[in-house]
Amino acid sequence: MTMAATDAMLDTPPTPAGPWRRLLRNRTAVFAISVLAALAVLALAAPYLTNAQPLRISPGIRLKPPRPQNWFGTDHLGRDMFALVLFGGRTSLLVGLLVTLISMSVAITLGLVAGFYRRVDMVLMRLVDGLMAFPSIVLATAAAGYLGPSVTTVIVALSIVLIAPVLRVVRGQILVLRELPMIEAARAVGVPDRRILARYLLPAIMSPLLVQASFIFSAAVLGEAALSFVGLGVGARDVSWGSALAEARNYIQNAWWIVVFPGAALVLTILSLNLLGDALRDSLDPRLARR
């Protein structure tokens, strides 16, 4: 150990607080969690917060600026933007949550196996390299062709695309951990592989996985919006921030509210998730936090 490192350790008083306490002491984390909680409540309570139907077309009130009847104005079809933003939040958060759960569970399972068994690793990682070189837009378009544009299609396509990056993180961690003396010891006393994976290795990678989960969630929200924006996402029967923005380009000169409100909701959600990810990383890995 270097002098500098020893000094740094002596200078910093030992912090007895656990990772969760540290997280709640982090003002950014508290902000991000509050914003996300508020967004979730707004999305869930959407039907009670507005009488407007998000998809009801009212040609009589096209492109109205924000006013008491339509807080966020109306779009080119006369749809209430406030209702579109509220109900769009449901789609975004639902897609984010499910994509995170699906892609993380597949990636964790495959990553544990790949990191632990060298032979599987060789084949699987080359496949992953190839998958990452595959344009995800082709996958999304093909999925829309199979299943038709719908929320389910978006969830399937994004889950497949987001497996690869998590898989790499999990596998990288396992490659390091499997060489630890505790694993060697477990093997020496005859603990079966499955138990080593589930009881020793999986818990050891929980912290980096939690960090990954918030970034995957944010990538999924962004991905859904981008797909819906280009017309490959949720169909015409569902509401999404991305699809609300799809026509915005044509009205940008005279209806700023169509661009600003769904976009701001989207940015706020993604920003909070990224801030949460950063804060989680800092509080779960104290070595990084000291920087």
């Binding site: 944010s218 962004l222 919006a225 981008a226 924006f229 923005l245 915005a248 380009r249 940008i252 661009v259 976009g263 989207l266 940015v267 993604i270 920003l271 990224n274 801030l275 950063d278």
Partner: peptide, 15 residues
């Protein structure tokens, strides 16, 4: 920077 990574490209393009 954290705001920058949170901006969807298509929205930024509109702005």
């Amino acid at each position: 920077a954290v705001l920058g990574i949170s901006l969807p490209e298509f929205w930024l393009a509109l702005l």
